[in-house]
Amino acid sequence: MGLGMWGYPLVEVRETEKELMQSKTEAQSNDKPHLRSTKEVTGYDINALDGDIGKVEDFIIDDVTWKILYLVVETGNWFSGKKVIISPHWIKDVQWQEQKVTINHLIDEVKNSPEYDSSQPIDDSYQHTLNDYYKKIK
C-alpha cells in the first residue's frame, strides 16, 4: 500500500472520499425523494382506475426544456401489444415501493385511445387528436 502526500495510506484517503461522495448523494436524494430517473421508472406497471393496462416502456421528453411530455405504455397482452402514450397530467398516483403508476382513466378509455406509432413524429395534429379524445371522455 502506497502513502499519500502527507504520509497517509492512499486506500484510506480514497475510502474517505468514497464515503463523502456517498453521503452527498444520499443527502441529495433525501432532499427530493419524489424524483426518480426515467431509467428507474421504465418497467413500472401502469394501472387504470379499474385495473392493469401495461408497463412504462419509454418517455417522450422535450429536448429543449427536458420536460416529460408523455409516458409510452406497452400494453402487451392487455390490448394485443398496442402502444399508447399517457400525459403526466393524467397520473393520479405513483407508488414508488410497488413500482406502480395509476392514471385517472378507465381501461376501456385507454384501450380506445389513439394508438402511438414510434415511427411517426408526435406532431400537433396527433397531440390535438389525443387531447380531444381524453377531453371528450371526461
Score class of each variant (00 low, 15 high):
V13M: 10
I85W: 01
M1E: 14
V101F: 00
I61V: 15
S23G: 09
G43I: 00
H105T: 13
E40S: 08
D45H: 01
G4A: 04
I68Q: 13
I85A: 12
D123Y: 01
H34Q: 11
S29P: 02
E98C: 02
S80N: 14
Y116W: 04
V56Q: 00
W90A: 13
E12G: 06
V110D: 06
F59M: 14
T38K: 05
I85P: 14
K111D: 06
Y70D: 05
E15Y: 01
K82R: 08
K135P: 06
I61K: 04
T42Q: 07
E19G: 12
W6N: 15
P88A: 10
E19L: 12
K24H: 07
L10H: 06
I86P: 02
V110N: 11
V84W: 00
M21I: 04
K83Y: 05
S23M: 02
T75I: 10
T75M: 08
T102R: 01
T129N: 07
T65S: 07
D50M: 02
H34F: 14
D108C: 13
D52G: 03
Q95P: 03
I86G: 04
M21R: 07
G43L: 00
V73T: 04
I107H: 03
K82Q: 07
P33D: 13
I61L: 01
I107W: 09
S23P: 00
F79M: 14
K18Y: 09
R36K: 15
K32I: 07
S80D: 12
M5C: 05
E15G: 02
K135S: 07
E98G: 05
Q97P: 00
I60Q: 04
V13N: 14
S118F: 00
W90N: 13
V94R: 09
K135F: 10
K18R: 04
E57D: 02
F79Y: 09
D63Q: 12
E115L: 08
D58Q: 03
D58G: 02
I61D: 07
G76E: 01
E17T: 11
H128F: 13
T75K: 09
E17V: 12
W6A: 15
I91G: 10
T129Q: 13
T42H: 08
L130G: 12
S80I: 03
K24S: 11
L20F: 05
V84L: 04
D108Q: 10
V101C: 11
S113G: 05
D124K: 01
E74Y: 10
L20R: 14
F79W: 14
D62Y: 01
T38N: 08
D108G: 12
K83F: 04
V13L: 15
A48F: 04
P33N: 10
T38A: 05
I60D: 06
D62R: 04
H89M: 12
S125E: 03
M1A: 15
N30R: 05
D31Q: 13
Y134P: 05
S37P: 12
G43A: 00
L106H: 12
L10F: 00
N104Y: 04
E109V: 05
K111F: 09
D108H: 15
E98Y: 02
Y134R: 04
P33V: 06
K24Q: 15
Q22R: 14
N47E: 07
D50F: 03
